[in-house]
Design a protein around this nucleic acid. Structure first.
Length: 271
DNA sequence: ATGTCGAAGCGTCTTCGA
């Protein structure tokens, strides 16, 4: 089975890159993040022509996650129990409202015998913002939901944009991130706690250079200088992790005309 | 490392988030 995850930064804008990539790479399952389209606006017909069924969880301007599968797509779950929701404006960093609203940041389904999750973890903005607290709480709730899947005996792969670099080696210069989100102790602890439910971090090999980065800012030639981060992660339960035959970052997809700022992570395994 | 990109609003620019 070939499983991939890709933050496409708008599925509408990225369709001219996504469709050829699917044809070339032929993943069995692709986890997509930041679709940025309403629930019914995912280009499902276009990917269906390539043999993929779609489960999309979307809300419009922000967020949005999807699963594309050609090996089955059963028991689809949009969101998860315990999701705390965000009590602010969709784009703001302050909590303003009494009633948090759940955002389209997680979808899971059974694909080829695996409970596959596509997740888009809240950014956190700054460590001082309410959004940062939301990020930590959200990760804690995700941990509980994934633990329930494992307790139910499912094989599990939690894939997506975690907006956390697990280690200093996952950023181009730790000093440049002092005081920033993505590298703080509490964020790394929350990700470690998710792993501690019984998952392994499948670290992909970079196809060029020493750094396993999956994201490079569009600005300032960051990609060409390889000033990136590893924030797109695949966490897999033992039956999968022990069966991985290959794992790589498709940096070719970050090149050329109209790329996403994230590259796909692809893993192959035999179960 | 703040150099770009994408969405949305009533908009052919501005604002915001990432």
């Amino acid at each position: 089975m070939r499983l991939a995850t890709w933050n496409v930064n708008s599925v509408k804008a990225r369709l001219p890159r996504l469709l050829p990539w699917l044809e070339q790479t032929k993943p069995d399952v692709l986890c997509v993040q930041e679709t940025k389209v309403a629930a019914d606006a995912f280009p499902a017909a276009e990917v269906a022509e390539l043999g993929y069924a779609t489960a999309h969880h979307g809300e419009g301007r922000w967020n949005g996650v999807a699963l594309l599968s050609r090996v089955g797509l059963d028991d689809v779950r949009r969101g998860f129990d315990g999701d705390p929701g965000w009590a602010g404006e969709p784009g703001g960093d302050e909590a303003l409202f009494d009633e948090p609203r759940r955002e389209a940041r997680a979808v899971s389904a059974l694909c080829g015998g695996v409970r596959v999750w596509s997740v888009y973890v809240p950014n956190g903005r700054t460590p001082e913002s309410a959004h940062y607290g939301y990020k930590l709480t959200w990760l804690g709730a995700l941990r509980a939901a994934v633990a329930a899947d494992l307790a139910a005996g499912e094989r599990v792969a939690v894939c997506g944009d975690y907006n956390v670099a697990p280690a200093d080696s996952d950023v181009f210069d730790p000093a440049a991130f002092a005081g920033s989100t993505h590298v703080t102790g509490p964020e790394r602890d929350a990700v470690a706690a998710l792993l501690a439910t019984g998952l392994s971090d499948i670290v992909p090999k970079p196809m060029k250079g020493p750094n396993p980065f999956t994201y490079w800012d569009y600005r300032a030639g960051m990609f060409h200088q390889d000033k990136g981060m590893r924030i797109d992660l695949v966490f897999a339960s033992p039956a999968i992790a022990d069966a991985v035959s290959d794992a790589y970052i498709d940096r070719e997809a970050r090149k050329g005309k109209g790329p996403s700022d994230h590259a796909p992570v692809v893993i192959n395994f035999d179960i």
